[in-house]
């Protein structure tokens, strides 16, 4: 029974959702948005679960003075501070239980929650994102080391695309006659991105779509059950 009911629900809902893709008449046309709303409502409640997990895991580390417990303490303090600021003085246009905190806003320029968000979370996120530039450099170095014919090809293609996307690239091949304009670096870059690169990406997308169809069908007909926790 523990397995049968979820499988039955999955089967019925799966069929309805597939039908709604091809039937534009109500109630089918409304089903997708209705189900999305249900999902949002449920995930709203699930946030409490996440919050509980966060507090439980980190407070346990702090309580038992586990290794690196200071990070957990920082997480808990950040969580409590931002929740208190949000509840007391609200965020953006929303009022908190103590109003808009005009006195504090006059002092720091914005609401405390927004101040922390703009000066704490946003710069930290940007820092993490900017790390990408360094990681791309190290990954590219490894990928472009010439070891085989394939890595040679990759290296040449990458150099063409990189040069073609900079202002230096057009300068390098600007002397080429019109009859050889296809060898002009920006044109060559466009060609690589429009044809071979797009073709490869579309092939991956098509095979992924087939995988999604197969996977969905296995789930709908109850052949694939491991997402329920057990395949029995």
């Amino acid at each position: 029974m523990k397995r049968t009911i979820p499988l039955l629900i999955t089967f019925i809902v799966g069929l309805i959702v597939i039908s709604s893709e091809f039937i534009p008449h109500r109630p089918f046309s409304m089903i997708n948005s209705t189900l999305e709303n249900w999902y949002l409502s449920i995930s709203g409640f699930a946030i409490v679960l996440g919050l509980l997990s966060l507090v439980q895991v980190n407070s346990s580390k702090v309580y038992h003075k586990a290794e690196n417990w200071q990070y957990s303490l920082a997480s808990l303090v950040s969580l409590v501070v931002i929740v208190i600021f949000g509840v007391l003085w609200g965020m953006e246009d929303q009022r908190g239980i103590l109003g808009n905190g005009e006195a504090i806003s006059a002092f720091i320029g914005k609401k405390p929650f927004d101040y922390l968000f703009d000066n704490g979370i946003t710069p930290l996120s940007s820092t993490m994102f900017s790390l990408l530039a360094f990681f791309i450099a190290s990954a590219a170095y490894r990928a472009f080391i010439i070891r085989s014919f394939e890595s040679n090809l990759l290296m040449i293609t990458a150099v063409i695309v990189i040069l073609g996307r900079t202002s230096f690239g057009p300068m390098l091949t600007s002397w080429l006659p019109k009859s050889l304009s296809f060898l002009h670096l920006p044109n060559l870059t466009d060609f690589i991105l429009t044809y071979p690169s797009s073709a490869a990406q579309r092939a991956i997308l098509m095979s992924a779509s087939l995988g999604i169809i197969g996977s969905s069908l296995r789930i709908i007909i109850g052949l694939e059950r491991s997402y329920l926790g057990s395949d029995e």
Binding site: I204, S207, G211, S215, E224
Partner: peptide, 19 residues
């Protein structure tokens, strides 16, 4: 695992002939 292989993984790992 490229694209489709991710979705095939569960069936592949299950060793279930039907999957």
């Amino acid at each position: 695992l490229i694209g489709e292989e991710l979705f095939a993984a569960s069936a592949y790992l299950s060793n279930d002939p039907q999957q």
